[in-house]
Structures are given as C-alpha cells and as structure tokens.
Design a protein around this nucleic acid. Structure first.
Lengths: 328, 328
DNA sequence: TGAAGTTCATGAAACGTTTCATGAAGAATC
DNA sequence: GATTCTTCATGAAACGTTTCATGAACTTCA
C-alpha cells in the first residue's frame, strides 16, 4: 500500500534474510561469505535497490564531491579544464560540483559557504580574487594563483613559456619583439609569462616593446599601441607574443584592419593552446598548456591524504604549437 | 577536547537556550517569535554554524540538485547551454550535477543510475542515444530530442530555422541552394532543420542539392561532394545551408582549399549561433538558437510541480545573425 | 574430548536534519 | 472569572547509512 518508496538496506536485508550490516558490507565490497553475498545480491536485483548517497554522507561525513570554482565555461580554456578535471575525478569515483564565479568576488565568497554546507571533500579554485579567505579545514588547491605555502598551486610553466615564445620568435627570424597582455594587476602565475619573455629577450639581446593593460581597460588601447608603432605602413617590430590566445586572436583582427598581415609582416604567438571546437587546428600559433596534466595534478593533490606535505607549487611543462600565425 | 567538529543544530539550540525545532525553523525562514529568532541568529553567528545538506537531504528526500546530462563542454554550444542552465538553476537555489557522456551510451546508462543514487530532483538530458531508458519516477526533460508525450522536450524552432535559412539565402540573391549535415540517423529535432529548408525551397521554387552523412562518416565525404559540384572552377550552387556552425566552419575551410571564396562565390549559413570565445562576432552567418530561453525552459519545466501537465514539446524562436559568410 | 582461538554475521547506535503531536501560555468570548 | 480558541516553542521520532561491540559457530591443538 505505502511501500512505493525506493527500498532501503533494511528492506534488502529482510528480503535476503540477513542482517543490515551484511548488506552494507556487500554494497561496499567488503569481505562477506560467498553464500551471504549471493543472497544479498539476489535480493538487491529483485528489489531494484538503489544506494542512497545522502545516508552515507551523513554517517561518514564524506561526500565524494569536489568543488571546482572557475569563472565560467564559455572561455574555451576553462571549458577544457572543466572537462579534464571532471574526467580525472570520475576515474576516482568522485563527482564535481561546478561553481561559476563570473569573475564576481561576492559570488566566490558565497560559493565557499555553499560548498562548505555541502560538505565537499575538497575545493579546486581558479580565481583572480586577491583576498579570498581560504577555508583551513577543507583541502584547497588553486590553479594559476599562488596564495601561500600551505595552499598548493598548480600551474603551467608560465615563465618557461615566456622564454619559449621569445626563443621561438627569434629562431623564426624576428629581429624586434613586442609583448601584449591584459589582466589583473596582482602578480599571479600567468604574469610570469612576461617575466620569462623579458628574461629571454635580454639574454638573446633582442630589443622589445611591451604593453600591459589592467583588467577592465578597453581593448582599443591595444589598437592605439599598434597604430603608434606603424611607420610608413610597416610595424617597427616583427614578432609579437600575446598573453593569451583569446587576446592574440583579437589583436590579429586589429592588425588586419591596420593592413598588417600575419605572419608575413609580423609573427604572432599566443598562450593556452586553444583549438577551434576543442579539436583540430590551433587558432593561433601558441604555447600550449598541458591541460590534462594540470587537471590530473589538481585532482591528485586535492585528494591526497596528506595535503600539507604536498609541494606548494606544481609547475608543468609547456610546448610550442604551430597555428598559422608564425612562419612554419 | 573532541568538539572540533562543526557545530550542529543541537549545539546551536543549546547555545541559544531554545529547542532544536526552533533552530530548524529559523534556518529555514519559517515563522518564529522575534526574540527567539534573535537568540538563534546570535548563537549561529557565535558558533559559526554551517548548515548540513546531507542531513536535510536524508530527511526530506530532496536534494535541490538537478542533473544535466550532456556530451561535453568543449563544443561551444554545449558550453553556453551549461552556462545558462547553471544560472537558471542557481536563481532558484538549485545546484547542477554535470554528467559528460562523451557520446558514450554506456556512460549515459551509468549516469542514470548514479544520479538516481544521488537522489537528484530532476534530470535534463541532451542525448543522442535512441533507446535510453527514461526513469519514470524522476522529472525528466530532454533537449533537442523527443522521446514521448510524457517526456517534455525543449528545442529551438529547428523547422522554422531551416525555412529562415532558405528564405534568407533567397533574399540575398542565391539562385541555387545546397544543404549539408552530419548526424545520427534517428529523426530528432535538429533533423527538422533540413525539413524546413526543403519545404521553403519547394515553396520558393528554388532548386537545391543535399547531402546528409551518418555519424562517424569521415568529413572528407563533404569535400568530395563539393569537388563534384565544381564545373570550370565554379560551384553549381551559390547558397549553402549547413546543419551546425561547427560543420559550416569546417566546410568553409574546405571551400577555401578548393579556391571557392565565401561569400563571393557561395554564401554560407550555419546553425547554433556560436561566437568566438562566447562573445563578439559570430564565427559564421547563422541561425541563432535562443540558448538562454532554452535553459530557462528546461529548468522551469523540470522543476514544475506538475510535470505531467506540461506541454510535451516546447519550441523556441530562432533568429538570423550575420557572421561574415553572407553578403550583408 | 575439552579448552582456547579464530572467523564472521548480527543489530543497535549514531550521523544532522525535518516534522508533527503535545501542551503551555496568552487572547477572545460570554 | 470561567471557558474555549489560538498561537507557538518543544523535543522525540524518523530518514538510510556505517560502524563496532557482541557472541555464535567453527577450527585448532593438546
């Protein structure tokens, strides 16, 4: 009459003629006598028993859920990251709870509270908020942003990527370089792209220009910069390194409208490794972040039993990839 | 000594000198005498009490979580959908549980079981699996795929979009059209794009070609198709409607390598409304799906109290947008 | 054969919440 | 002032799981 509800372990136990605890053991794959196991498994099949996650979470205070805090999923790089992190979690039988900050610091703070109420087993965060309060009692891993030695940070080798970009442009025959970037003022890992680039230029003895805009500045400023560097229809640099593929793509549009052709007049290298629809060709020549390795590192770190003994900065190697905006 | 644990409602009750049930009411915003409310709120603040979602879920058998089953997030259209569905859910104080099928039917089946174990309050699914078994006891809404009258389906007006594409190309002066598409053999909502297109061509009295490939067929078949339609260096049609922006983009690459220029020699219209990095210009001229409205419809439908009385097909209007691959 | 040791199913207690029957205290009615 | 109504805080029970102390049933060994 009233037992239209989904059956519980108690129902299974009764159906199988065994104790409640035995059912629990079978469900969790703990050692149980074979005849008991069979009885329980049959009963489960007969009743269509479905494990209840909430009961377990309440009892054990572990949810098998990791929160991923990230600006959005519309930026293809973030989309890729979400994708690989989810896969890495799934492999370990964890679920991902996605939180889109939309670059809003209030939302970030709300999420920290929300995921705490959900008793997530850990947090992976890609955030640009400089004064985020990091919960001390939940395993916390950041991407691309170093907070303190007690909070592990996973990042691509941004410095090395900057070096690689400069060297590559040099190798491809560029005589004079430039660097463009937009982003938050705080010094985070991605800002090391510039440092690596500058360091390599100095070492190679190549002259270079640079322009770094604060977040929120209109992109037209870059157009002004470019226009100011045109003399007699020609740019006065022939190699350009841009902080992200997304910006590189935009800048190339500006160059076209200024009648500068890529890669004939200027060769351009971006950063991230974004591909059209996530597959096929890169949208620009680029320094590729090892997204899958980054995801794997985040997950294995946040799930590691002894977080405090983990290295506080995990730096993963990058690669150059051709994407049509360099001569190659 | 041992109370390093997060405090519970019982702790709050003791601290505030009120009953457990009173704390519950305050936390849930139910009517409570003002002096009691104050006492409880103070105690909550003092103890830093954090609500426990698992306890609530166990007791009420509702989780405030909706599962979203979708192939991946790398395809920009899916990324946009995920984004808007998440926002729509958040607005209603629900969380989203993301499940990436990777177009794998086994994974889909596993997810159905998994989300059931998690006692989600509903499922929104974008799936190409023709014989998915839909749980009868969980509110279920599909996107772009009609299963039965008892399972509401939300979709853009695909037929209307096909009509619109044909009319637009006609309006732009095309004399002979073609349609390309790749996708599963089953007749789902997106396959109506073709139907609308054909119907409009017939009505307008325009001749047209078409090629529809099964999923998994190599895309080079389209290149063959195009090559076969070139006579003396010119295509024998001057308007092309492609099933998705993604395919349109690929096909335009093929056209370029065949020395056919777009939009001079042939005008191309895609479908979906994909923009580079989710913002700015459309990557091709296109029929734009109203993603936000689709998301809103999915969410309000799956959460509606009387799902069975909902319309079984919710069809939302599309728009044409210029993206550089038509003359306009 | 008996004692000691080993294995392993048993089932009650606990996790943190919501719900609801209970009754105390105050308001309204005559 | 006695009665009935109304309001509203109270706290025990229940949700489905895991865990662990208990002891039954065997095994081993002298």
């Amino acid at each position: 009459m009233k037992d239209k509800q989904t059956p519980t372990m108690a129902d299974v136990a009764k159906e199988a003629g065994v104790a409640l605890g035995t059912v629990s053991k079978v469900v969790n794959g703990q050692p149980v006598g074979p005849e008991f196991r069979k009885k329980v498994e049959d009963a489960i099949a007969r009743l269509g028993y479905q494990y209840n996650t909430s009961g377990r979470a309440l009892r054990t205070d572990r949810t098998n859920v990791i929160a991923l805090i990230i600006p959005n999923t519309v930026n293809p790089f973030f989309a890729l990251l979400v994708h690989h992190i989810n896969l890495a979690l799934e492999k370990r039988n964890f679920r991902m709870m996605l939180c889109f900050t939309e670059y809003d610091q209030n939302r970030e703070a709300e999420f920290i509270q929300m995921v705490r109420q959900n008793r997530v087993d850990g947090i992976i965060a890609l955030t640009y908020n400089p004064d985020l309060t990091i919960p001390a009692d939940i395993p916390f891993v950041t991407i691309d942003r170093f907070f303190s030695v007690s909070v592990p940070c996973v990042a691509a080798d941004n410095f090395g990527g900057g070096v690689l970009a400069a060297k590559k442009l040099h190798e491809l025959g560029c005589k004079r370089l430039a660097f463009l970037r937009i982003g938050s003022t705080l010094t985070n890992e991605p800002s090391k792209r510039k440092d690596g680039f500058v360091s390599a230029c100095v070492e190679l003895g190549i002259p270079f220009e640079m322009m770094v805009l604060d977040d929120g500045t209109p992109l037209s400023r870059f157009q002004d910069f470019l226009a100011a560097h045109i003399h007699e229809g020609r740019l006065d640099f022939d190699g350009l390194f841009v902080g992200t593929d997304m910006l590189a793509y935009t800048v190339i549009g500006m160059l076209k409208s200024l009648h500068i052709s890529v890669p004939q007049d200027v060769q351009v290298i971006g950063f991230d490794g974004i591909r059209m629809f996530g597959e096929g060709e890169y949208i620009v020549s680029t320094i590729v972040q090892p997204v899958q390795e980054i995801a794997e590192a985040c997950v294995s770190t946040v799930l590691s039993k002894h977080l405090s003994t983990m290295p506080s900065l995990i730096c993963l190697p990058v690669q150059y990839a051709y994407g049509g905006t360099t001569r190659e």
